[in-house]
């Protein structure tokens, strides 16, 4: 379980998170949504220990992420941030293999190799595995990064806009993959999403943030209403049910 208690964060004088408290369930997919500057990425950064809050604390399975041993946390929780400018010339295989570093410190066991191949397979990367990252497109690199955190095989997986740079096919593939990981392997996945329809179709819980606070938390059915969307994004959205999922239309 992830428990966020009174987390506050300022960048300079600007408050980014205003005493955020949040409890997320044990498994399933949780989507963080909200307009630009709502504090989603910062909250994810603090939940994942990469950023320190000004005050407040984050517990994951009752471990304080900011004081627990980093190597231990790396086997419990994986985080992929939005931009991962990798300037190293590594092959896709080498990068994904580093996902096993928390377990094997780089000396791969058979178990590690299995996990790596599985992750490469999930993200359709086998044909690219010996290519250098700097020879790939942005989307292919993004998939390699996702494969890396996937084969870290942690209970908690935090992803900041994982669909960035991806074409529609790969975006859908990854959402399906994450859904499967949650359903079949009992993982808890928290991700920042910009496309509210992906959130609505794949998430169990949606957390909506606005101006550094949690504005709403609930199931897609509870949150996908014209009133909440107007409140959150300031646009008129018509919500329709397609294949029994609420889908927002706001493009006209």
């Amino acid at each position: 379980m992830i428990q966020v208690t009174s987390v506050t964060k300022h960048y300079g004088d600007t408050p980014v998170l205003r005493s955020v408290s949040l409890t997320l369930p044990n498994e399933g997919v949780t989507a963080l949504i909200g307009p630009n500057g709502a504090g989603k990425s910062t909250l994810l950064g603090i939940m994942s220990r990469l950023q320190k809050p000004d005050s407040g604390q984050v517990l994951i399975d009752n471990l304080d992420v900011h004081s627990t041993d980093n190597a231990l946390l790396a086997r419990k929780l994986a985080i992929l941030r939005q931009d991962n400018p990798i300037s190293l010339r590594l092959t896709v295989f080498e990068l994904v293999a580093f996902g096993r570093y928390p377990y094997s410190q780089g000396r791969l066991t058979d178990e590690d190799t299995n996990q790596i191949n599985q992750a490469l397979g999930y993200l359709n990367l086998h044909s690219l595995q010996h290519r250098f990252l700097d020879e790939l497109s942005g989307g292919q690199r993004q998939r390699a990064c996702i494969a890396m955190v996937l084969c870290q095989n942690t209970d908690y997986l935090l992803l900041d806009e994982p669909l960035n740079n991806l074409d529609m096919k790969h975006a859908v593939d990854i959402m399906k993959l994450l859904r499967r990981a949650a359903d079949e392997l009992g993982k808890h996945i928290v991700l920042v999403l910009h496309d509210i329809n992906f959130a609505s179709c794949y998430a169990d819980t949606i957390v909506a943030m606005d101006q550094g606070s949690i504005a709403h938390q609930g199931t897609p059915d509870e949150l996908m209403t014209p009133a909440i969307m107007r409140d959150l994004y300031g646009i008129e959205m018509s919500i329709q049910r397609i294949q029994n999922k609420p889908v927002g239309f706001y493009h006209l």
Binding site: L50, A78, L80, P85, S87, P102, G106, Q152
Partner: peptide
């Protein structure tokens, strides 16, 4: 060597993989 490769990946990725940055 592996630790130095990881540090070359940047603070975020290195810390995610449990490196004492």
């Amino acid at each position: 060597a592996n630790r130095f490769t990881l540090i070359g990946l940047g603070r975020n990725l290195a810390m995610n993989l449990g490196l004492g940055y």
